[in-house]
Amino acid sequence: MMCTAKKCGIRFQPPAIILIYENEIKGKSRQRIMPVRNFSKYSDCSRAAEQLKNNPRHKGYLEQVSLKQLEKLFSFLRGNLWGQSLAETMEQIQRETTIDPEEDLNKLDDKELAKRKSIMDELFEKNQKKKDDPNFVYDIEVEFPQDEQLQSCGWDTESAEEF
């Protein structure tokens, strides 16, 4: 079954993931409501997202919707169940999916460090040139001259003595 996903969102009451898609044959917008069952404020959003995506009844429709997006939608629902405002939930998602550049990762335990690394891995994979890419070059050299005129990185201390 071929369909082009247009939009995907969440309805809080009663909870459902809603997909707006286009049926390629008819070229007409359609809506699919996928009820969310057995989801509480203690549920794991990434597991819920996986289950929905692999659900035999919805699978075909959700092919173009990323697991990340579904996970995020479940996070909105979860936040709502906790009584958080949308802004609060947004902020929380932001915190959990980005790296705080000021945070000292040396101070984290293995689990927390692994979380940060997986966030970093996303960008890494996005920018990664793999060996089987057609334009892959093993040895890429680019010169970045460190001239005197360059602007400082701003990370050095004021005094010239210290770096």
């Binding site: 960008l123 890494f124 994979e125 920018n127 990664q128 040139k129 070059v137 093993y138 040895d139 890429i140 050299e141 680019v142 970045f144 460190q146 001239d147 005197e148 360059l150 602007q151 400082s152 990185c153 701003g154 990370w155 050095d156 770096f163």
Partner: peptide, 29 residues
């Protein structure tokens, strides 16, 4: 960041390499 100066390397006269493990820039070098 490749257009910025980093004093640490300069202070100790160490070579500074700008690299990317993701796209491979200057890694082999």
């Amino acid at each position: 960041m490749t257009q910025k100066s980093f004093n640490f390397a300069r202070k100790f006269s160490l070579p500074l390499y700008f690299v990317s493990a993701a796209d491979g820039t200057n890694v082999v070098k």
